[in-house]
Design a protein around this nucleic acid. Sequence first.
DNA 1: GTCTATAAATGGATAGAC
DNA 2: GTCTATCCATTTATAGAC
Lengths: 200, 200
Amino acid sequence: MTAGARPARRGRPGHAREDVIRAGVELFNEQGYDATSVSDLTGRLGLTKSALYHHVDSKEQILQIALEDALGGLEQALADALQQPSAAERLQTIIRGAVRVLTDRQPQVTLLLRLRGNSEIETAALARRRRFDRTVTALMREAQSEGLVRSDLDAGVATRLIFGMINSVVEWYRPDGPVDPDLLREEILRVALGGLAART
Amino acid sequence: MTAGARPARRGRPGHAREDVIRAGVELFNEQGYDATSVSDLTGRLGLTKSALYHHVDSKEQILQIALEDALGGLEQALADALQQPSAAERLQTIIRGAVRVLTDRQPQVTLLLRLRGNSEIETAALARRRRFDRTVTALMREAQSEGLVRSDLDAGVATRLIFGMINSVVEWYRPDGPVDPDLLREEILRVALGGLAART
DNA sequence: GTCTATAAATGGATAGAC
DNA sequence: GTCTATCCATTTATAGAC
């Protein structure tokens, strides 16, 4: 438990900051950020408020750390997609990458997708999310120009619909559930490009 | 102002219950239900808490009325779909019907889709929503059996993906925005069945 | 690293006058 | 139908002992 390569748990026993963050994000997702009190969180962790505030500066800091994790993952996926050589590959790569981030970091992304902009931290995160959305819309428009995606549909609407489908995965996907994330990723890509209809 | 056919505004002037509900739902959607205080609401309406409580029994009652509106609309759309003569028409009708309810009652449905189950009213609404989802999944399965929808995809996953796409409309559609709701409805149906890919 | 105790503000809701 | 004033529970967060 004193760790090998990873210097995870230095010093005395008790709760680590990491545990507090994880439990906080979990609870925020179950009840909503605003509906979750610090007492709720200490109740679940089995410690007092003072002890909790020894690990984190504020309730909002827990949110901030989770949002950074979610946004960092999505931005990295977008950077990867932008390096692809063709418009088709760029679009496919961002769709696959986004689904992978959603399944890998479901709790953090869930928080991001539910933000309302009620504080500076929330509005800053929403601004980063909008930047991501704009770049993805540009990829969609590019795919339309090259004839890969139908053009009888506004690129913004198309992006919102497809990412609406992708993002909704956080509402039901669970890592320990029956759905395999790798299969899901390919299924989403197929439904996004080819739709539900049976091949005729 | 004393109304003709509709006995809308009986008695003295001032705010009507209807105004309070509408403003409340609007504010709940902007900030989240839990993040919205009764003071926020009285601030927007320009009256005091006591005056507001003359119109409604509680903050939660505003939520309840909105949820009934959303669920009633979705359940009616489902009843209409179930009366269609073929599986193909039943599936298409519930997709079109759901989109119509989302655009017609965007604020109310938005509240429904964001519920976390933090009170008895919320859990009751979520139970009704799950019942709706189960029936739609049965329609999807039926469409698969008849060869209308590809069967290399679990009916539950397919329903979640398509309704994830449909439901995401509440996040950006606005009645006074640039997107025509009738066109959007047909575009969603086309993307759901045929996907984004250009016809080859 | 955790505790008891408490501060200071805000939450939803009510009493009773006008 | 709206007001002032208030109740009481709960909120986030801190002080200081162990």
